[in-house]
Design a protein around this nucleic acid. Structure first.
Lengths: 169, 169
DNA sequence: CATTTTATGTCAGTGTTGTTGACATTCCAA
DNA sequence: TTGGAATGTCAACAACACTGACATAAAATG
C-alpha cells in the first residue's frame, strides 16, 4: 500500500499512509478541542453533548419535527426523545402539535433555550474563529473541502439542506 | 458579533458567524463519516470506539505504558483499564512488566491485535485517501493547518510528540 | 530503614447516550 | 371501517465515560 503510493511519484506524497495516519490523528485531537468548550458549559447545566446537538439543530431549523431531527442527528427516536423530554421539562424547548398532520411535533427553542444556544455557540465559534484567523482564508477553504469530502453521501445531503435552509429563510 | 465581523471588510468574510457555523456543522458531519467505517468493523468483534483508540495508539507507540496512554486518550485509568482488560483477555494486547521500572506495564499488539489494527486503519485511511484525492494537496494542507489550530495546546503537544516518535524510531 | 510518591489495578456507584421492544396515537388508503 | 404506515412515548438494557475509595508494588527520598 505504502509502496504503491510512493511509486506514483512526488506529486502524490500527501497520500502516503503516514500522511493519512497523521490526518486521522489530527481529526481525533482536533475534535476533542472542538467539543471541549461546549462540554464545560453543558456540565454546568447537567446536560451532555446530545443536548447540545439537539439545541443546535432546533435553533438552526426552528419548527423542525422530531423525525427530521432524528435523521440529521443519526440516532434512534427513543434516544432523542429522552434528551428532548429533559429540555422540554426544563423549559428550553417548546413543542407545537402539527396543524396539518397532528402526529408531528414541531420543536422551537424558548428564550431560555436560545440563551443557552448563544452561550454554547459563542464558545464554539470563538475557538473556530481563532483557528480560522490563525491560518487564513485559503487554509479554511481547504479545511471545508476535505471535511465535505469525508462525509457520507447522506450526511452531505443533510449538510447542504441545512445550508440551503439558512439561505432561504 | 455578526456586525462587528462584517464591519472589518470583505477580506475577513470567512470569519462571519455564518461561515463559522457552517464549519462547526461540517466538523460534526465529517466526524461521523470519519468514525463510521471503523465502527462497523468494531461491531463485528463486540468492541467500541474506546477499543479502537487504544489499539491505534498502542500500535503507534509500541511499548507505551498505561499512564502514557491515559494522557494521550484523555480518559481515566478506570475507563481505560476496562478496555485494556478485554483486549488482553482476547489476546490482542500483550503486557510486559518494565525492566527498568517494574511498576510500569508496557503494552504491545499481538499478531491478532496488529491484524485488527490493519483492518481498522485500512478502512479509515481509505476514506481519508479518497477525500484527500478529491480535493488535492493544497486543500489537505489547509485542512491540517486548521485542525492543528483547533487543538488544545496540551493536545497539540501530544500530537507533535507522536509525529516525532514516528520520525525517530 | 521508614516514609512518601508514583504507577498501576480493582471494586462500587453514577450519569449520559446509545440500543431494542412494546405500545399509543394519528393519518391515509383500500 | 379496517389495516397499514408514520410518528412519538415509555421501559429496560448495554457501552463507556466519570468519581471515590482502596490495594499493591516499586521507586525515590529523607
Amino acid at each position: 500500500m505504502a509502496t504503491s503510493n510512493r511509486s506514483t511519484g512526488e506529486a502524490l506524497l500527501f497520500l502516503t499512509d503516514e500522511q493519512l495516519r497523521q490526518g486521522i490523528e489530527a481529526m481525533f485531537f482536533a475534535y476533542r478541542g472542538f467539543t471541549a468548550d461546549p462540554d464545560r458549559i453543558l456540565d454546568k447545566y447537567g446536560y451532555g453533548r446530545a443536548h447540545h446537538r439537539a439545541i443546535h439543530f432546533i435553533n438552526c431549523v426552528p419548527g423542525t419535527t422530531v423525525n427530521n431531527l432524528l435523521h440529521i442527528l443519526g440516532v434512534t427516536k427513543q434516544s432523542l426523545n429522552r434528551v428532548l423530554r429533559s429540555l422540554i421539562e426544563d423549559g428550553l424547548v417548546e413543542v407545537q402539535v402539527g396543524q396539518k398532520d397532528r402526529r408531528e411535533r414541531h420543536l422551537y427553542l424558548t428564550e431560555t433555550g436560545q440563551s443557552l444556544e448563544q452561550e454554547l455557540s459563542n464558545a464554539q465559534r470563538a475557538r473556530m474563529r481563532s483557528a480560522y484567523r490563525d491560518v487564513g482564508a485559503d487554509a479554511v477553504s481547504g479545511f471545508r473541502q476535505v471535511l465535505e469530502a469525508m462525509m457520507d453521501p447522506e450526511m452531505k445531503r443533510a449538510y447542504w439542506k441545512l445550508r440551503d435552509n439558512e439561505g432561504t429563510e
